[in-house]
Design a protein around this nucleic acid. Sequence first.
RNA 1: AUCUGUGAUGAGUCUAUCGCUCCCUGCAGAGGGAGAGGAAAGUCCGGACAGCGUAGGGCACCACACCAUCUAACCGAUGGGCUCUGCAUCAGCAGAGACAGAUAGUGUCACAGAAAUGAAACCGCCCUAAAGGACAAGCCUUUUAGGGUAAGGGUGAAAAUGUGCGGUAAGAGCGCACGGAUGAUACAGGUGACUGUAUGAUGGGAUAAACCUUGUGGGCUGUAAUGUCAUGUACACUUCAAUUUCCAAAACCAUUUCGAUGGUAGCGGAUAUCCGGCGGCUCGCCGGAAUAGCAAUAGUUGAAGGGGGUAGGCAGCUAGAGCCGCGACAGUAAUGUCCGGCCCAGAUAAAUGAUGGACGUCUUCGGGUAACCGGAGAUAACAGAAUCCGGCUUAUUUAUCGCAGAUGCAU
RNA 2: GGUCCCGUAGUUCAAUGGAUAGAAUAGAAGUUUCCUAAACUUUAGAUGCAGGUUCGAUUCCUGCCGGGACUA
Length: 135
Amino acid sequence: MLSLNMIRYSLSKSERLSSLKAIERLFQEGSSISKYPIRLVWMKMNQTEDHDSPVQVMFSASKKKYPRAVDRNRIKRLLREGYRLYKPTLYSLLPADQTFHLALIYIGNEIQSMELIQKKIIITLGMMLDEQSET
RNA sequence: AUCUGUGAUGAGUCUAUCGCUCCCUGCAGAGGGAGAGGAAAGUCCGGACAGCGUAGGGCACCACACCAUCUAACCGAUGGGCUCUGCAUCAGCAGAGACAGAUAGUGUCACAGAAAUGAAACCGCCCUAAAGGACAAGCCUUUUAGGGUAAGGGUGAAAAUGUGCGGUAAGAGCGCACGGAUGAUACAGGUGACUGUAUGAUGGGAUAAACCUUGUGGGCUGUAAUGUCAUGUACACUUCAAUUUCCAAAACCAUUUCGAUGGUAGCGGAUAUCCGGCGGCUCGCCGGAAUAGCAAUAGUUGAAGGGGGUAGGCAGCUAGAGCCGCGACAGUAAUGUCCGGCCCAGAUAAAUGAUGGACGUCUUCGGGUAACCGGAGAUAACAGAAUCCGGCUUAUUUAUCGCAGAUGCAU
RNA sequence: GGUCCCGUAGUUCAAUGGAUAGAAUAGAAGUUUCCUAAACUUUAGAUGCAGGUUCGAUUCCUGCCGGGACUA
């Protein structure tokens, strides 16, 4: 296979969380990790309700903190970019027989730079991996 | 030249890597194309489109209100009229105007003031009478009573036509002259609002952004409208099948190859239910029962059909009152007609992003007489489509251009 | 997406278009008390912003700003 060494950074629609019911269930039953300026809500799913991808993720920013749509769009784009570039590493670290639902929420009061957000995303996802392996 | 105000235009360009949404080609790997704004915002007006409603008319409610034109339509735009304000003070220029009606009616007008609307007499001015002073009378002034008077004073946001002459006891549009205001009639100009001239009339507070009157317009709700497909679970309805206890003695009836079989019947047992007791108490054991009856058009179970319809999908959804041309013609203009060319976002927890490079632009530093050269930094402000258009309002950076005003310099 | 309502002292509420915008409570100062509380006296404090109508605006009208409710 020629694509073994090739790393895919893509983030297509099947890898994003879009079902209203799944999102409600995630926020009711999922556990959360806060690492300023990012809050992560995650939940381990059963293998039976399988999907194409091992992880489905969503991004959000509070409408109360950022009343203008431009700011919310920018935050979500930055979060998406940071997650996208880290995704191949995350997939290699995850256990192969499980799927996850994630929500990345920005809780900072100011929009930070791309580098910082990317660093914080890597930290929070690492914390999540540690927690799930313990259980 | 600088500053201020105002209007118009544009919103960097090219490219590399990694991605996102839609479309096209291809069996596929993949390739190609397109991808936020002038306000996409506020949701303040007006439409298109859709559903529901609807004989016709009226009342109520809401909106609007000088005129003409433009427009699919408008509380919009263009041009014009009138009024007010500012500058000039001759013409004019700029800005503002919710700009129908106060002689249809009702309400309100605090305080002050005599009086705030059937207007009004506090001071003042004048007349008459009585009393008093003085006294021949005239005269003088004070008080009281009755009257006249809107010139003067003072109050107030507002006190009802200005000036002059006549007139009068004093005064007054009471009369006259010259002005000003209001509405009426006639003539002239203008499509019209309105303007000008002439005639005779009037002397009447403000407020309709108080109720209201007049005129004009408006059916209601909104693309999360509406239509359509429909998995799973639960359910209305229809059809079909199974089942609504199991085993079973004596006795009776039928058949018989005399072994038995079938039917009626139901002693007894099992099982279930109920009651009581005990234990190791989601269960088990023991004991008890006038429980398990009728009927099948009924109940239960299963299968098939089937309706509404949830999650979700699809249509609505983007070719249109469309965009471009310093195109032509008509018009003062808004705008319209014609010609040619073009296809230009369609997401749905919601796409248009991240990191570099080059050029351009701006700021700043250094060198240079200058053109220019080199280094550093910035490339923005307001802000993100959600059915689609036409406006309005609000937010806002930088560059260029136009107009107006102010200041300075040169001629 | 659509529809509607409300903004008054720090807080909870009043005020018919009429001028010093009122009351309770909270705050500050004082009296009283050995001290505190209570009580009493005094005091400061506000109409969301900008225009307009009116002689006069918290009130009426227009535009912004902020907050809330309903609907699906």
